[in-house]
Nucleic acid binder design. Structure first.
Lengths: 145, 145
DNA sequence: TATTTATAAAGAGTAATTATCAATAAAAAA
DNA sequence: TTTTTTATTGATAATTACTCTTTATAAATA
């Protein structure tokens, strides 16, 4: 995991460099994402922000997250049902996702660069991004079966 | 690519074996999926079926595709915007997706089994599925930039 | 033929997300 | 500091992909 403090400063610096205003609501969202290891969804972020700023609108969360994604400071992991976000490692990396509890982990895996090159070579595509998800059952949920 | 005729027969056999009726609408959908190399979405399938059976409902396409997925005869590739389907290779395999024209290709890549084992080993997950998409620009769209 | 059962069509309903816009507040200018 | 400018917020409406419900229809079976 990247250092949350460093991530926070990096994200704030990026916002400032692009002349986006730092509002209290924005700061709250950025803080949550910089320290996120559990890939929260908008609803989770919303709940946390509302503890500090109760009048915050869900639309503000959506807009802030979209802005940070635009600035390449968060990674969006889209599912058909909803999205989850990673502000701590805002670049493509493999995920392991539990079907039951929806937990998402970031395993350290080698060899994806090689696969990417192979895909590019075989298809002629210029590859700019990738997504690698393993879907299964986590150890905790396995014991509850 | 698997032989479309063989895939068609396999899919029809599976429907019959499970005592599902072979209606004209269903047959039309199955035919399209068995021969699909371009990973069509529901809307595309719908348009093609309507050419033969103009009164067909979109819900029928959704239901037929869901049924075939249930029987493991099609692979659903979910995107947040919509789903695409593969009735020709109905098992997990890597995709290369063009950002511009939304074309989807199936490159032959080795080494995914090894990655899966590594992910399982590192996290303790029981992996039952995976998804590997490379996103980029296809050769045709590269020339139009 | 009568009856049961699976399936189709139509359209209302759902949930996540996006768009709209008046009100507000942060930054810039005076 | 005060004023002005303009980005941002918050409430809500609109959108969109998809699902559910109901009713109608057609096939299988007795």
């Amino acid at each position: 995991m990247a250092d949350p403090q460093a991530r926070l400063e990096q994200m704030l610096a990026r916002l400032k460099a692009c002349n986006f205003r730092l509002t209290p609501q924005r700061l709250a969202v950025v803080k949550i994402l910089a320290a996120s290891v559990d890939h929260p969804g908008v609803e989770r972020i919303y709940d946390q922000v509302k503890e500090v700023f109760p009048t915050t609108s869900l639309a503000t969360i959506y807009k802030t997250v979209a802005l940070l994604k635009e600035l390449n400071e968060v990674l969006e992991i889209r599912f058909s049902e909803s999205s989850r976000f990673d502000g701590n490692k805002p670049y493509p990396h493999p995920h392991v996702i539990c079907l039951k509890c929806k937990k998402i982990l970031d395993p350290e895996l080698a060899g994806i660069e090689k696969l990417t090159q192979e895909a590019s070579h075989r298809t002629g595509f210029r590859i700019v991004n990738h997504r690698l998800d393993f879907i299964g059952i986590c150890p905790e949920c396995q014991t509850q079966e």
